[in-house]
């Protein structure tokens, strides 16, 4: 699969969020290109830009794995292709 994805993690801050997410990404051969995080009104918000060019599973499988991880950690984790954000906010 070509292109880049944006992973957003939103929820209550706790130990090990970045570790858990990046572990899943490494297992599926997804390279992280950029990470930023912030605390917005007590909510932990992390955003990752990832490269999907050598991902070892189908996009929807990766999405499922991340969603399951989110449930486990009590967070919302989602992955979307990058273009939607570029298209909507840039001319």
């Amino acid at each position: 699969m070509e292109g880049k994805g944006i992973i957003t993690v939103v929820g209550k801050d706790k130990v090990g969020i970045i570790y858990s997410v990046t572990r899943v990404l490494a297992e599926n051969n997804v390279n992280v290109e950029d990470i930023s995080q912030t605390i917005l009104q007590d909510y932990f918000t992390m955003m990752m830009m990832v490269n999907l060019s050598s991902v070892s599973c189908e996009f929807n499988k990766l999405q499922e794995i991340l969603e399951d991880l989110g449930k486990e950690l009590g967070l919302s984790i989602r992955i979307q292709r990058e273009e939607i954000f570029n298209y909507m906010h840039e001319i």
Binding site: I6, T8, S36, T38, T45, M47, R78, I84, F85, M88, H89
Partner: peptide, 12 residues
Amino acid sequence: MKRQKNVLETIH
């Protein structure tokens, strides 16, 4: 930061 704002806005 701007990018983050855009991403969160879309998700919202």
